[in-house]
Design a protein around this nucleic acid. Structure first.
Lengths: 187, 187
DNA sequence: AGTGCCATCTTGTCAATGGCAAGATAGGAT
DNA sequence: ATCCTATCTTGCCATTGACAAGATGGCACT
């Protein structure tokens, strides 16, 4: 199936995306090279162009894949907003390559309809979790604002974690550290 | 002073950094080209190497400049944590190029001592603002955790804003939108 | 089975880039 | 006046992204 023998690879598109995840995990998205991906997949340097057009095309496909993965992850985390938030951070750490591309629109075609659709799916799950929250003490909290605050704190923590900007005392377990920080929203 | 005539530019280092800010503002940090900066400054393609060594060296200098700018901005915002948070977001929007580089450690030498020092200066101001807060209702909030939550929500909002990921209904005034979201931490 | 079609992949090429080496220039120190 | 060193230049090479043209082979249709 994944045998690469023969003139036709058989599953080159997937192989290139996998290679991209691997390469980005090693050196970040800035250092990504299409020719390197082709070498990893064992094909000629121009093969990627047929499937993705250009570099931005490949990263666009990776972003779509990432937003779909994120939507699934959030759904699987259950109805609880805290759990969804922790899952968001966990996704960023476990699928670092996808995450690092998804929120860097200068790297790919963010206006691509497939990207927008996948992105909306993920955002919808997050909004659902916020809407499912019991009303806060103070009374009518704007759900739009609450969703924005939840998204911001979770996205910020994930980003800072990936950037290595957090102090060592935060520890090395992103899930636990995120849980503590997110809970701050409910106290 | 900034006259570029003659063999020696006179202020090439600053001119290159300024050009980098301009170029990143146009096309993002991924598309940055040293040769383009040299052209903008009116010097030969190898001139930047003398001042910064390589591309990472230039971006390292830009990150240092950015963290110092941020520290100053936060200081000028006053003692209030809310004001500091709004200033953080405002900095990200107004100095987008610096901000986009600062938190992308794969682009520069994040372990450079100058970077660490400047980064610590900015982080110190933020921690001070959190420490200056009156204790919360619930009693003893861990100031470390509170600082992390504040930094996360502010950084996340700024990042999402820059990525263009926020829905249109947030509006077009980052300061006002940030104020609303940050206040969520105090209710 | 035979035939033609077309997606897939290859080879070849070009301009642009980053980085290195060696040389030219100038402004200041002695 | 001379040297000296930081600054800038020219020249070069490997790598990359993108494009063009050709090779290959699976697949539909007869």
């Amino acid at each position: 199936m994944t045998q690469t023998r023969g003139y036709h690879h058989g599953d080159l598109r997937r192989a290139l995306l996998d290679a991209a995840v691997e390469a980005i995990g090693e050196s970040g998205p800035a250092a990504l090279s299409l020719r390197d991906l082709a070498r990893r997949a064992g094909v000629s340097h121009a093969a990627p162009a047929h499937h993705f057009g250009d570099k931005a095309g490949l990263l666009t496909a990776l972003a779509v894949q990432g937003f779909d993965l994120l939507a699934g992850t959030l759904r699987d985390a259950g109805d609880d907003l805290l759990a969804a938030g922790v899952a968001y951070v966990d996704f960023a750490v476990r699928h670092r390559a996808h995450f690092e591309v998804m929120f860097r629109p200068d790297l790919y075609r963010a206006h691509d309809p497939e990207v927008r659709a996948a992105s909306d799916r993920a955002g919808g799950v997050l909004r659902d979790r916020v809407a499912g929250l019991p009303a806060r003490d103070g009374g009518a909290g704007d759900p739009g604002r609450d969703a924005l605050a939840a998204w911001s704190i979770v996205h910020g923590f994930a980003t800072l974690w990936l950037a290595g900007a957090l102090p060592p005392r935060v520890g090395d377990d992103p899930r636990e550290a995120a849980r503590v920080v997110i809970r701050r929203l409910f106290e």
